[in-house]
Nucleic acid binder design. Sequence first.
DNA 1: GCTTGGCACTCTACTTCAGAGAGTGCCAAC
DNA 2: GTTGGCACTCTCTGAAGTAGAGTGCCAAGC
Lengths: 351, 351
Amino acid sequence: MVHRHGDEPLTERAQHLLKMLVHRYIRDGQPVGSRAMTRDGGLDLSAASIRNVMADLEEAGYIQSPHTSAGRIPTDRGYRFFVDSLLSVRRESGLDADNLRIRLDAGRDTDSLVDSASNLLSGLTHLAGVVTLPRRDYGAIRHIEFLPLSERRILAILVLNDSEVQNRVIETDRPYSPAELQQVSNYLSLEFAGKSVGDVRRGLLEAMQADQQHVNSLMTSAIAVARELFADDGDTDDDFVIAGETNLMTFAELSSVEKLKELFEAFGRKRDILHLLDRCLSADGVQIFIGQESGYRAFDGVSLVTSTYQSDDQVLGVLGVIGPTRMEYDRVIPIVDVTARLLGHALKPDH
Amino acid sequence: MVHRHGDEPLTERAQHLLKMLVHRYIRDGQPVGSRAMTRDGGLDLSAASIRNVMADLEEAGYIQSPHTSAGRIPTDRGYRFFVDSLLSVRRESGLDADNLRIRLDAGRDTDSLVDSASNLLSGLTHLAGVVTLPRRDYGAIRHIEFLPLSERRILAILVLNDSEVQNRVIETDRPYSPAELQQVSNYLSLEFAGKSVGDVRRGLLEAMQADQQHVNSLMTSAIAVARELFADDGDTDDDFVIAGETNLMTFAELSSVEKLKELFEAFGRKRDILHLLDRCLSADGVQIFIGQESGYRAFDGVSLVTSTYQSDDQVLGVLGVIGPTRMEYDRVIPIVDVTARLLGHALKPDH
DNA sequence: GCTTGGCACTCTACTTCAGAGAGTGCCAAC
DNA sequence: GTTGGCACTCTCTGAAGTAGAGTGCCAAGC
């Protein structure tokens, strides 16, 4: 990283060679030598010529050799170029899509869909699958119920969509009687039914308050309680579900116990992974982190292929696959893509 | 395992020697030779005499040698005898108990208490902590609410204890109107308030039904719905929380990636572990599974120290620690014991 | 000027060998 | 019953040698 000469664009030949090299390395897991590339490379060049090109590629930082007399392996930068410019994604077979559709059938509850998606990803790729829980402030409010716990503590129950239940303990600034709570709940249920939590949080509440200027005490109470209920207390308890982590234990490049430990600790901590996944929320389509690009040491040698999933143009979350940098991107990418689409579809509320 | 001579009881000396050997092996992780035992063994015997006794212990199946010229290591059977008959449990330091109490403070919700307990176990022992979720049919019913989803599907919301909410979609045999549901819910809330789900399931329902012989249609409806609601559909979605699994990756005896994979797959499958933990539910006090005793191949070389936890004499669940067979039982056992007590206490409903 | 065969060089991986060290089992002596 | 002695076995370590793979460079060829 001290100096980086080769910012001249790669020649056609160099690109083709890099592509072949990455493919071969992904397939065999062995450093690829000049000899091996003479055969199937498509180009009719001698090993010596290939060596020249490979020397250039090495200088430009796309490949490196583990030691003098081994072949070359791609660097993170090499993989990046490969993924961005050289990769032609396999179309998934129709069979896959049907198969997936069955296993990601709509009509089940959110949690089990997320679980299925995660398992699906890991099962199909033989890597680890991750799925963030869908953002919850998107669902349509169906019913609001309050239950007094003690003087000033109320258990609020919020029913969303089909059958999703959220509950939350809120503290009020004054005591409310059960009857009062009942009224408030009726009022809010009526008023907010069909709106999303996000909508309510994003201003509906203020609008009501401004418009009607507390025409009666019921409204005042309702708004006070609702404000507590919908307060965004920063506790956006994002979470994700991971499946098939143990698949990662079979890869030679991760087989040192220390690396595995580091990686699994990152899984357990959740924070780093979440942060990484959150970065994918903004861009849509498939996105890829390669090795150290993520900035986390535990991700050395590991890649992450992600996609957002959405329904009705609302981005709900991120899902993806974690595997060794040396993974079959051309096979994994469409799987992630399709799974994201199907999960989005299965989560569609009006289904 | 072909024949097992030594069913004669061990001599005093043999027991003492076994105890020393296990202690040493747990401390150092190295096979223990006759020479090493001459010093600190307390007995004043020559290496040769010790060799004789060790030969007896080996024949009786308590110890074995990895190869001809290594020392001896305990077998599962040896550990078992050690744990049952030779172990004197260290009293935990008072500091620990206070420290724990703070981190397992009552008044938080069940899930976070269970999480804390699991983390506590793994943090204190540097092993993996497991805690089953408390049995849920113990909590006192506080409120029952129904919400119509479609013609014959009802979302039932059950509020227990302080603020624990369960919900469940039930299918009815005929359509119910909202008003009707409201009546049913009022009736059931009144009738069942304070009772535990277990109580209701265990006969209260039948009693009501038999007693009153459907005096009116409301009762008939209520009982029909309640039957659905409290049906024990075998889906006792037992679950457990595990923490600190990665601690297990540092132990030499588990450092083969295949063994680790096997073990972590067992964690992920959950079924086997749950089955194992369920076996501990019956006996109370600390219980220990050593290595192959559990019957699962993944548990070769691994021990499980468990205890039930309970409040008000009601067994709520099981918690424990998973670690290599070569663990410091005398240190781990009191930790498990204390944690179980504190968790039980923290979960006490009337707190 | 690009391409190619040839060649010396380097580095890893594997095998073999020998010696050190640890521990045992057995035996004869106490 | 206990002990010192001794031959034996097995693992571990390091050294040394060999085979194999791949490279870099150079001079010759198209």
